[in-house]
């Protein structure tokens, strides 16, 4: 069983232009990620709650309505309130340069401008989405190795004969 990068792709605000969000969602899937798509017109509260419950590494928001200066800060605040600051927030859409700077200063991890190739978004997420390690229960490596070696030797010997 493998760990998968999980990403929530959300469309907060009122605009219905989900072309970008869907194209990105499909590209992330094709890059092997598990994408939770929340649908249109989501409130910031429901996006953050979904991100927490789905335990995603990244929240990706597409905002084309011009409400980015309202929505991003609210998302960040709600994440802090849910003790989920480690969930990264990235975004795409039409965001003027000075707003972009402001948003990155308050903790938005990355903003992608219009026309960004999806491969760039995929790569960024792959490079940056790392979760803290969780406790595992695997048997000690040394034990496993020993058993492996033993068996391999025996099979070899036999097949030669």
């Amino acid at each position: 069983m493998i760990s998968k990068i999980r990403v929530l792709v959300g469309k907060p605000g009122l605009d219905g232009h989900d072309r970008g969000a869907k194209v990105v969602a499909a590209a992330l899937r094709d890059a092997g990620m598990e994408v939770i798509y929340t649908g249109l017109h989501q409130t910031c509260e429901s996006i953050v709650e979904a991100a927490v419950q789905e335990d995603v590494h990244v929240i990706g928001l597409s905002i084309l309505s011009g409400a980015h200066m309202t929505i991003f800060p609210r998302i960040l605040k709600l994440l802090r309130a849910s003790k989920a600051k480690d969930i990264m927030v990235i975004g795409g859409g039409i965001i003027p340069a000075d707003d972009m700077k402001k948003l990155q200063r308050i903790g938005v991890h990355k903003l992608f401008g219009p026309g960004t190739p999806t491969s760039e978004i995929v790569d960024w997420i792959k490079d940056n989405a790392v979760k803290p390690k969780r406790p595992t229960t695997r048997k000690k490596k040394s034990v496993r190795k020993k058993v492996k070696k033993q068996v391999r030797k025996k099979i070899k010997k036999k097949s030669k004969g």
């Binding site: 094709d30 092997g32 798509y37």
Partner: peptide, 16 residues
């Protein structure tokens, strides 16, 4: 997806 191993999970849309 059997090809990429990725997935699009959309059931939540119904449960907002």
């Amino acid at each position: 997806s059997p090809f990429s191993g990725g997935a699009l999970l959309g059931d939540r849309v119904r449960m907002t």
